[in-house]
Amino acid sequence: MIIDTTEVRAINSFSRLESFKEVYGLTRLLVPIFTPIFGITIGILIIVWLERKISAGVQQRIGPEYAGPFGILQALADGTKLLFKEDLLPSRGDILLFSIGPSIAVISILLNYLIIPFSYQLVLADLSIGVFLWISISSIAPFGLLMSGYGSNNKYSFLGGLRAAAQSISYEIPLTSCVLSISLLSNSSSTVDIVEAQSKYGFWGWNLWRQPIGFTVFLISSLAECERLPFDLPEAEEELVAGYQTEYSGIKFGLFYVASYLNLLVSSLFVTVLYLGGWNLSIPFLLIPDFFGINELEEVFGTTIGIFITLAKAYLFLFISITTRWTLPRMRMDQLLNLGWKFLLPISLGNLLLTTSSRLLSL
């Protein structure tokens, strides 16, 4: 029997080509998935380090110094410690609800990063209902907190979960009204279209100047949604020990902190997208040379500049929220609900009515 070596080589080459195509296809599938996850993880570690350093500066302390240069590895050390700590379960609690509550809180917030445009070409899903998808998905997180509080079989935990649900309902409607106003101004609910609508006049084209009332309401509501001081009633240490986190330890306890910082980062990014022009530069396009136009560049340089501008604006909001945490006292629960229902809701609805009227008159 004679074997044609040329045919064997062709078969081997074809097999290698098919294997290469399979590996390449798998790589193209996994890289867009894991790249944002890696970037978000780094962002959370940076936020934890910034919060420690900024709070130390406000209180005239040094802050973390020994875990890496300037303490930059302190957040990684804290996460590693929680990862290896014992995971305790309440003996009389609902173990199923107790276990899946933190996961629901993290996953519901993590899905919001799908629609955030970091630059013109760097967005995972440019959906026509982008901002409303964020509103709908973010409203799932309080269910995870309520499940955690109920499953703990602890009166402090359950009260913290109830507070989280009440707080979310109170501030979700003003937040939605502000988003509706931005959608009316941009004639679209897509996050990419909203950023593009602000790009014509640079700094003066931001929705911040066209929606100052909406920006203020959105800022307050987003802080309440993130449960940051002065709105951290669901986990008030002086009243509820640690709220819905009281019975948690180990990695489940760490997931609550991951969810908190994920929510803070996604709120900062949405403030940037909705009100601060997203990835666009802050000077009018007429003053930018043609070779430096961000919207026209389709290369790595343009994408990198867009990412840098987006993150710089987002971290400005992060600095404000962290500073607010260490400068304002905590509100009472009745004050928090009164602010949401009696002040922010009428103001946001009035702002939506004015925006709608102006759009109708301009037609």
Rank of each mutant, 00 (worst) to 15 (best):
V273D: 08
I135H: 05
L336H: 04
V300H: 06
Y171N: 07
G254R: 04
W134L: 12
A312F: 12
F256P: 10
A67T: 10
T41Q: 13
L184C: 03
L255V: 00
E299K: 11
I2C: 10
G302V: 07
L361G: 04
L185D: 06
L111V: 07
N112Q: 14
F38H: 09
I294S: 11
S321V: 15
Y120T: 14
G350R: 13
T303M: 15
F291V: 15
E239Q: 10
V58S: 05
R330Y: 06
Q211N: 02
Y156E: 01
K53N: 09
S358I: 11
I220A: 10
R228D: 12
T303P: 13
T304A: 10
G202M: 01
A56M: 04
Y201P: 02
I220M: 06
V8S: 00
S222K: 12
Y315S: 00
L73F: 08
L83P: 00
Y315P: 01
A314V: 02
L50Q: 06
I251S: 14
L76C: 13
T216R: 05
M147W: 09
E238N: 10
F38C: 13
I322G: 04
R332K: 14
V241Y: 04
L336N: 05
T80Q: 12
F218A: 10
A105H: 08
V300D: 05
I169L: 13
E22W: 02
L311E: 04
S15T: 11
S170C: 05
S221G: 04
R163V: 00
I129A: 06
N351G: 11
L45A: 14
L265Q: 04
W341E: 07
L264C: 03
G214W: 07
V131R: 00
T310Y: 02
K21R: 09
T327S: 05
I251H: 09
I107L: 14
L276T: 02
F14P: 00
T303I: 14
R325M: 14
P64Q: 04
M333D: 15
A56N: 06
K21G: 11
M331Q: 10
P117C: 03
W134S: 07
V271A: 13
I109R: 02
A197H: 11
L97D: 00
F84W: 01
L223H: 03
